[in-house]
Design a protein around this nucleic acid. Sequence first.
DNA 1: GATATATTAGAATATATATTCTAATACTTC
DNA 2: GAAGTATTAGAATATATATTCTAATATATC
Lengths: 193, 193
Amino acid sequence: MGRPALLSQDDFIAAATLVAARLGPAKTSIAAVSKAAGVPTGSIYHRLPSRDALLAEIWLAAADRFQAMALAAFAAASSIEAAAEAALVTSRFARAHHAQAVVLNSHRREEFVTADAPQEHRERAIKLAAELREAMTDIAARLLPGDPRGKERIAVALIGIPLGAVRVFLPQAVPPQEIDADIEAAVLAALRH
Amino acid sequence: MGRPALLSQDDFIAAATLVAARLGPAKTSIAAVSKAAGVPTGSIYHRLPSRDALLAEIWLAAADRFQAMALAAFAAASSIEAAAEAALVTSRFARAHHAQAVVLNSHRREEFVTADAPQEHRERAIKLAAELREAMTDIAARLLPGDPRGKERIAVALIGIPLGAVRVFLPQAVPPQEIDADIEAAVLAALRH
DNA sequence: GATATATTAGAATATATATTCTAATACTTC
DNA sequence: GAAGTATTAGAATATATATTCTAATATATC
């Protein structure tokens, strides 16, 4: 087995996520993560092959978690009203997982999953995007049948609007509870105006 | 006078903005900008003291332009309905100035105006933020008098929602004309639900 | 037309930081 | 308790790229 690691892989990625949320991807250096997590720089290369792999892991951990919550919420929504409520998943996620929300919300995916990330990580990111697009198509067919702009409107309403509302508060603060009513009203209006 | 520059300062910043929109701030190297603008690397240091100054110039040029448009639009809005129409300034800006919209919309300000940017640039960014906050306060007092959450709702509705809606399409595409009706309906609902 | 000057041009250097390497260490299994 | 191994630990090296430097060049002014 060998000497035990100071941190589990999950705890290590969580520590790295805090650094990424605070400093942004460009300043998320191996030295900064090493210091914040309390592990030597060399040890990081026992876990991961490169800095690009680390940045990708940070993003994928956040995206996996958000997407699981979001797809579950949307899958259960069988009416426009239910979908507007499900859209609150974005602000709820931001309250529960602030650093991961900052990573997902305040940066482009490409800043974390770069062209130099390992092929495996790139593919996971592509797969997540495809799954999300597929879910949007399903919801559009269910809630806005016959609307040629259905998919676009679903994306704007269920993803774009909540994202933008939350972003007003990130990264400094957590989005206040009260904005959920504003978001729900806005999403509803975008879906049925 | 000396030898004339290949590019005006504005054209140079415009070329750098295209690079920043395409590659993101982290990959906006002096070499990449130099190649894209067609000016030698050394010349860049005749114009600006450092890469951090260049990134700040890119962001400030975009922010100056957007803020001028936005404040003008909001200043003229004397009703909630007019404000909802004025909120379309965000999508209109994205159609007219795609690269600058990507810079402003898809990244955190701190990635462009870093801690190492010249003091003068940092101050300009702070001043812009203060002006915007002041404008939001004014609009809240005018359109939602007596609402203790007025300022927060104005920020979510007039900035957050349009930003998020546009972001669904950036950076790959320009936001389609048709989403403006969705945005207007959503903003209106967020302001008067 | 000569002089001064700002810029071009790109090579040389400096610097930051990603990655590798050597040795020591703490656990598991036999 | 001995052997094997994964990790700690951090110094050494490599690499990328920001910055500086030297020389040449094109324009304006006198």
